[in-house]
Amino acid sequence: MSGRWKNRLIARIITRFPSLSRRVVEAYSPRESQDIPWVPVTKPLYACTLALVTTAGVHRRDQQPYDMNDRDGDPTFREIPVDTPPDEFMITHDYYDHTDADRDINIVFPLERIEEFASEGIIGGVARAHYAFMGHITGRHLFTLMQVSAPEVASRLKDQGADIVLLTPG
């Protein structure tokens, strides 16, 4: 538990002082990608079903929290049904300060906002299910994320007819 306490404290401090967060960013450097995947958007926005994917550590209260004791993070995902009531959400993520997101989940996972967009006709609809990960996945878990979890989520998004996907970090 002491490790978690330390991570949370660091998360609070770096969120409060942006100059420190820049240092944290510089210390962790993702591998550089070469090719860039690309598919053109063909459907008009008002006809598109939108799905959300977040890496902010969001999950339902009845789902297993992400593993915070593994230094490499947790590469698993949680499926969030669209009819989840707002007070059923919680966040397990010690590497950013989610005090504000705990008060209003929409700042990291804007489900209520996109439902408004759908009812206003800005988008065609909201997908039946959305997907959540925790960020901060490193080391050996990167392989699982890239080879297992992310392709599985992509295939579920396809199966349920998502036309466009919006991704949000923590």
């Binding site: 960020g135 392709p151 992509a154």
Partner: peptide, 15 residues
Amino acid sequence: MGLIQREVEKAGIPT
């Protein structure tokens, strides 16, 4: 987040 985004786009959904 970007790594997952790339996988979704690879599967054929614009992101």
